[in-house]
């Protein structure tokens, strides 16, 4: 009973539609969650450098709470806890919201670091040119910060794809879920996990390569972790 016997691979190939369906769900959930994370990250990142105390405080609360509690717990709460409050989101939205909120906190930190990397004198200069706070942010600070934040942002996208496997824990129909389900039905664990691993790498390696390239080209930054 060779765990990697040829007929096991054939069985997997015949059932490839299941894996492709899972892959599709993984890509869809990741893409939507990334969009949400970018929006949340931009808003909360700007709040972090706000001249007012309340937005700064909100930023800290969001970032600290999200980064210091497990994604698993957050997602389970959305999936099993919220229905008690009368909120029954479809499982895809639970995944998108969970992943988006979690990575939004990391993106917010990236955005904050990016803004802080632009010299404060530029804000003063913009004020003296008649820009208000929001105008200065939009036209002067953020465009410059964008260059600094690009490598860590691609890295966040990568981390988000990896973390999307959390959907398997709530029957989310993603690649990890179907890999798990199919392999425990058929006992073809070896081929199933190898193929799933390779499919994840197909998604993540280009981003890893892009991150490294951007880091080299922009000459700074260290790959963070999430």
């Amino acid at each position: 009973m060779n765990p990697l016997a040829w007929w096991r691979w054939q069985a997997l190939f015949e059932n490839r539609a299941i894996f492709l369906q899972g892959l599709g769900q993984t890509v869809l959930a990741s893409a939507l969650a990334l969009g949400l994370a970018l929006v949340l990250g931009a808003v909360f990142g700007v709040m972090a450098v706000s001249p007012w105390r309340l937005p700064r405080w909100l930023n800290r609360a969001y970032v600290e709470f999200t980064q210091n509690t497990p994604l698993v717990v957050q997602v389970l709460f959305l999936y099993l806890g919220l229905p008690y409050a009368g909120i029954m989101m479809p499982v895809l939205w639970v995944g998108v919201l969970g992943l988006g909120i979690y990575h939004g906190a990391y993106v917010a930190e990236v955005v904050r670091a990016g803004i802080n990397s632009v010299h404060r004198g530029q804000l003063e200069a913009a004020y003296s040119q008649g820009f208000n706070y929001f105008g200065a942010m939009r036209h002067i600070i953020l465009p410059q910060a964008a260059r600094v934040v690009l490598p860590p942002l691609t890295n966040q996208a990568l981390a988000l794809i990896k973390n999307s496997a959390v959907l398997a824990m709530i029957a989310g129909g993603d690649l990890m879920y179907y890999t798990d389900s199919w392999s425990s039905d058929t006992l073809h664990y070896g081929p199933a996990y190898i193929v799933a691993g390779l499919l994840y790498l197909v998604l993540t390696l280009p981003l890893a390569w892009l991150t490294t390239n951007l880091e080299v080209r922009l000459g700074r930054g260290q790959r963070g972790v999430a």
Partner: peptide
């Protein structure tokens, strides 16, 4: 580092 940790645990 580019694979989901969950996958490595299950494998």
């Amino acid at each position: 580092r580019n694979s989901p940790m969950l996958l490595l645990i299950l494998a």
